[in-house]
Amino acid sequence: MAVQTIPLGDRYSGGSAAQSMSGASRVVHLAGVNRGTDDEVRDGNKRLAEQVADSITRAEDPPRSVVFANSTQSGNGSLYGAAKADASDTLRNAAEQVGASFHDVILPNLFGEHGVPFYNAVTATFSHLIANGERPSVDNDKELTLLHAQDAADVLLGTVDAAQQSGLEVQETVSGLLARLTAIDEVYRRGEIPDVASTFDRNLFNTFRSYTFPAQTPIGLTRHADARGSFFEIIRSHGGNGQSSFSTTVPGISRGDHFHRRKVERFTVLSGSATISLRKLFTDDVFEFRVTGDEPAAVDMPTMWTHKITNTGTDDLYTSFWSNDIFDPDAPDTIAEAV
């Protein structure tokens, strides 16, 4: 699936936007204004929707499907809700004008890796505070409808049918969410993997640990040695599937250069010397961790970070790999991307 971004706002160019949109199978409108003065919220959302609508109607080969990332606040009587409802109407009219299908996707409380804390996602704020050793409190306990951002993206892109969205959503109170994240932190600070048997728990763990990287990496492992040799634990998992594997790598060779969307993966060097390199998608900064079998340490691969391990020693490198899911060749969740 080829994806193209169209600049809006002050950078909008009707001609180039319409040209870029021509022949598209699906147009997704994500932009919006939810902070600012009343005029900025009202006029900003109106302007963005009108720019997308203008591109749709001007496209030589109009898109076959138009999708709007709407909000549960749409039509709730607030200024922002009214602005989102009006934007939806604008896009619906444009879609009808060119004979395209229109999908008004109502998104609840989204959470996901690297969300901005202290903005409009309580999961991001809680995760940030807990990962930094603070203990947040709940002032307004209410029930939330939570949807992982990657699930929302799948619905918006059409890789998951919109009718399945409600099945991906989870109901939880603010206090219940805080309790879940606190429990995850208590387990993960010991270097252990919390219960990730359910999809929601795995998504919540992946979200939380994105705020612990790189401060809590690598994870030190205790090595016990005596006359017989040495011993150390690689992982303790509190629930869910798991698969372990082992590799040897000759000097100078790398393994990896890929990222994962969902899976939890741990690298542990058993013997030899290596550098584990990680780069967050859409950035240029690379984090490197030098690890050896003599001082065992584990490095967990954050989701949406491309990574690789390179044998930097003179002997063969022995590495243990653990993942929370059983490898499925038809759905490997392994996307090639150079570090």
Rank of each mutant, 00 (worst) to 15 (best):
D39K: 09
M304L: 15
E172M: 14
I6D: 09
D39L: 01
F102W: 08
R266I: 14
P302A: 05
Q243Y: 00
F213E: 07
G112S: 04
D151P: 08
T5Y: 08
G256H: 04
G293S: 02
S20A: 15
V27Y: 01
D325N: 07
T217G: 02
I235A: 14
T145S: 13
G44M: 06
N206G: 12
S20D: 11
R209C: 04
R26N: 10
R266G: 13
R135Q: 13
G44P: 01
P117A: 03
V250A: 12
G23E: 10
R189W: 02
L270H: 06
G133A: 04
A87F: 10
L157Y: 08
I235Y: 02
G191D: 08
V105N: 10
V67H: 04
D201T: 07
D185T: 01
G256C: 12
D139L: 09
L107S: 06
T275W: 00
P251N: 10
N93C: 09
A85P: 00
A87M: 12
L177S: 02
R47V: 07
L144P: 01
G252M: 06
G176C: 03
E186L: 10
V52G: 09
D300R: 04
V33F: 00
F282W: 01
T283Y: 08
T182D: 12
D284E: 13
S277N: 09
A24E: 04
V286I: 15
Q243H: 02
F259W: 15
D285T: 07
E186M: 08
G112R: 06
D284M: 01
G220A: 15
A24K: 01
T173G: 15
I309H: 13
T212V: 00
D104W: 06
A183V: 06
D325G: 07
F282N: 11
Q73W: 12
L178M: 09
A87D: 09
A95R: 10
S22F: 01
Y80N: 05
P218Q: 02
P108G: 10
N206D: 13
T159P: 00
D43V: 06
A53H: 07
S16T: 15
R189P: 01
M21V: 03
A94R: 07
V155D: 06
V116I: 12
T248V: 13
Q97Y: 05
A179Y: 04
G99E: 03
L147N: 00
Q150C: 01
T222G: 06
E288F: 00
I235D: 15
S230H: 12
G81R: 10
V250R: 12
G23Q: 05
A85S: 14
D104P: 08
L129H: 10
R279F: 00
D330K: 11
R223K: 15
V250K: 10
S71W: 08
H238R: 01
E50L: 14
I276Q: 05
